[in-house]
Design a protein around this nucleic acid. Structure first.
Lengths: 197, 197
DNA sequence: TGCAAAACATACTAACTGGTATCTTATGAG
DNA sequence: CTCATAAGATACCAGTTAGTATGTTTTGCA
């Protein structure tokens, strides 16, 4: 990687850290620059404006990260319901990237930016659609394998699952991480209900 | 109500409208004042600072509103599971206060403010604890009435229900209101599972 | 009616915001 | 080596922010 590309990626990663904790709008460009050895000139050389940086952040940092953490648990495709449970469990327990106080970066951005910025909304919608699609696919395979009840509507159930995750991430901000385990227990009983008898 | 009290309440209500749509931090005091016949002098006479106004907004506008919309459907206490379903359904369908594009005011504030402002967090935690408590209570009554399965953990299930609501409000911002009905269908199947056989 | 306090109005400030204009330095192809 | 361009640095600007200083009007009560 060229030095310039490294600078660019560095800006994005530092931005991600700050935006994750403070929100997009509350994080100023000066905030970002003051945490690293990069000046405003460099910032605006690499990005047309703050918004372009934000969109690049979704595409170049969040998306790849998401592929690694989320999609992988579902690739085995042996027992979809257990794999979905694992996926959510991993996600909630992952302390390396996520802090319960600050919730989930993707959900945070959706909450903050989707209503007022069409470009952010599009980028984030595509992100979440992909995730829902993977879960839905997993459920469909489960039905084909006769491990998931045939009456289950994969689109409907996958929406229920990912919005459950989004919700507990919000609730975690006020109730703390002990709610994660309570949530996971109840999620398990819900998922078990989807099993074919 | 005295004229002064009316002015105060008016500031709070206009603030609520704007903060609901744009967020707390993105809504400036000047924004609020420019939508009404009130000056900065009046604002800072009634509120020590922006934060005090925000906290008053939760206490004096959101809390009472919530009591009316949320608690009432559960007071009948005849068929708790149906009443819980109605409560969420009403909430999602209520177009008079809520717009799917902007989500739920309480969830929005939690998302934005809980991580960085302890006073907001406390106020909002109490708000949501109350709501969860009412749902939990309803489930407990349901168990006593033998209408809810005895194996159900009311604390756990009520958390699952309200965080599901929080989540679909976030997802609604990107996926639109047609997701509400898909969510409600799946919520129903989940709730039916809680019924005693 | 008089008048103190409550309820506002106006003008201002210091700090911060995203963004730009202009300059300097580093890099890599020929 | 050389020189065009990529990459980065610095100083600045116009607009916006929460909050204040200082004034005026309105209100309720003796």
């Amino acid at each position: 990687m060229s030095k310039a590309a490294a600078t660019r990626l560095n800006i994005l990663k530092k931005s991600f850290d700050l935006i994750y904790k403070k929100g997009y709008q509350a994080t100023s460009i000066d905030d970002i620059l003051s945490t690293m050895e990069v000046t405003k000139g460099a910032f605006f050389y690499h990005f047309k404006n703050k918004e372009e940086m934000g969109l690049a952040l979704i595409r170049e940092v969040m998306r790849p990260e998401m592929r690694d953490i989320l999609f992988q648990p579902l690739t085995r495709a042996e027992d979809p319901l257990s794999e979905i449970y694992e996926m959510i469990g991993n996600l909630l327990q992952d302390q390396s990237f996520f802090d319960f106080r600050y919730g989930c970066p993707a959900i945070n951005l959706i909450q903050e930016m989707a209503p007022t910025n069409e470009d952010f909304k599009k980028e984030l919608t595509s992100l979440m659609k992909d995730w829902q699609g993977v879960v839905k696919n997993s459920l469909e395979k489960g039905i084909a394998m006769n491990k998931v009840h045939a009456g289950v509507d994969p689109a409907q159930a996958s929406l229920f699952i990912i919005s459950g995750y989004a919700g507990i991430r919000s609730m975690g901000k006020i109730f703390g991480p002990q709610m994660y385990s309570a949530y996971l227990k109840e999620l398990k009983t819900y998922l078990d209900q989807l099993r074919s008898a």
